[in-house]
Amino acid sequence: MKARSGSAGAGPGLMLGTLTVLVVALAIATLYGAYFYAAREKEMGDVQRIFYFHAPAGLACFLAFFVTFVCGIGYLATRKPGWDVMGHASAEIGLLFCLIVLVTGPFWARPVWGVWWTWEARLTTTLILFLIYSGYLLVRRYTDDPEQRARFAAVIGIVGFLDVPLVYWSVRFFRGHHPLVLKVSGGGGLEQSMRHVFLAGIATYFALYACLMVLRVRLGHAEVELRWLRERAIRGAHATRTPAGTHGGTS
């Protein structure tokens, strides 16, 4: 695998290297900013600092699922497997970010509210998204034909994302808005230093997303190629040269 990516040229390796450096740099900046630079929040104190890791993960998760949505449309329109590989990768990474939100949320909620979990709008929406995109992965796992798998995944990627605004609205309207997260996610109500770190957090997560995507997409392409090689090897074991060409073997 290492050799293959190397032999593909310096391009992909260079991109990955740059991204990794970028992610590490941004992460360090965000960590520093979160602990030392950002102002201390009045009501919650230092616990609030987890916000810089919690909220941007939610945004990145949203971005990832949007990419899966676009890739779903792309695949259905063009039938090129590359779209499916990308959509799959993005959904997996989106699920990872979902998990980060779902794990950091309780760590924030417990000291502040005394409970591990609150059915607050954003947390609940993330939980539901986690369910929907776990369903995406489940359907992929249980569909045998690769082309059918890609088509089904594309449809779920599209339908699932269309659901997101409806999920968010309905959970919010149902539960009422709890001030677990500060004022507004865009940083509009945030104090200046906090806004800076928040933006740094977003940049870190987006860069992390890009980095993980490069890795995962490459892995996905390798998986496709492995399957081809395996099938060909199985057929090749039965075949000899045929007048019809190199596609030997009946089945």
Binding site: I128, L131, I132, G135, V139, Y142, T143, D144, D163, W169
Partner: peptide
């Protein structure tokens, strides 16, 4: 109807999407 364990996947997918 065309996946394995479709009987289990159907309620999962359907209900997850229909939560709103």
């Amino acid at each position: 109807a065309r996946t394995r364990r479709g009987d289990v996947l159907l309620p999962i997918m359907m209900m997850a999407i229909s939560i709103p």
